[in-house]
Computed example of a mutant assay.
Amino acid sequence: MSRLTRNLLRSIDYEYVKQIRTNNFAYLHKKLREVNKLNIRPTEGAFMCPLLINDGMKIRKQLQQMKIYIPTLWPNVLDECELDTLEYKFAAYILPIPVDQRYGVEE
Rank of each mutant, 00 (worst) to 15 (best):
M57A: 14
L63W: 06
Y88G: 04
Y16W: 15
W74G: 10
L73Q: 08
Y93L: 08
F25A: 03
Q101Y: 15
L73C: 06
D79S: 13
N36I: 05
L63M: 12
M48Y: 14
T22H: 01
P42H: 06
I59H: 00
L9R: 15
C81H: 11
L32F: 15
D13W: 03
N23S: 13
L95K: 00
Q62E: 15
Q62G: 07
P96Y: 01
R10G: 08
Y93R: 12
N7I: 10
K61D: 14
Y27I: 13
C49V: 14
I12H: 02
L73H: 06
E44W: 07
K89T: 10
W74V: 07
E34K: 15
I94L: 00
I70R: 01
F25S: 02
F47A: 10
L86E: 11
K18H: 08
D13M: 03
L8C: 08
I68W: 07
L38S: 05
L52W: 06
T43K: 10
A92M: 08
K31D: 08
D13T: 01
L95Q: 00
R102W: 07
R6K: 12
K37D: 11
I97Y: 01
K58I: 14
L73W: 07
Y103G: 07
R33I: 11
L38Y: 06
Y69I: 09
D55V: 06
I97T: 03
I20H: 05
N24E: 04
K58T: 14
M1F: 11
V99P: 00
W74S: 11
K18D: 09
L86Y: 12
I97R: 00
N36H: 05
G104R: 11
R10Y: 06
N23G: 07
I40W: 02
N7W: 09
Q62D: 11
Q19G: 09
Q62L: 13
L78H: 03
A26D: 11
I70A: 01
L95T: 01
S11N: 09
Y27P: 04
N24C: 04
R33H: 12
I94F: 00
R41N: 15
I70W: 01
F90G: 06
S2P: 06
I70H: 01
R60M: 03
I53D: 00
V35F: 10
L52V: 02
N39R: 14
N24Q: 05
K67E: 13
N24V: 01
G56C: 01
P42M: 07
L4Y: 13
K89S: 13
G104D: 13
R10P: 00
L28T: 03
L4V: 11
K89W: 07
A92F: 04
G104K: 14
K61N: 12
I12Q: 02
V99Y: 00
P42N: 10
V17H: 06
E82M: 09
R33Y: 09
K18E: 14
V77K: 05
V35H: 09
L32D: 00
S2R: 11
T43Q: 10
S2H: 15
K67Y: 09
L9P: 03
Q101D: 09
L78K: 03
T22E: 03
P98Y: 02
L73N: 07
R10N: 10
I12K: 04
D100I: 06
M1T: 10
C49Y: 15
E107S: 10
Y69V: 08
R60Y: 02
T43E: 12
D13I: 02
I40A: 00
M57Q: 12
D100Y: 12
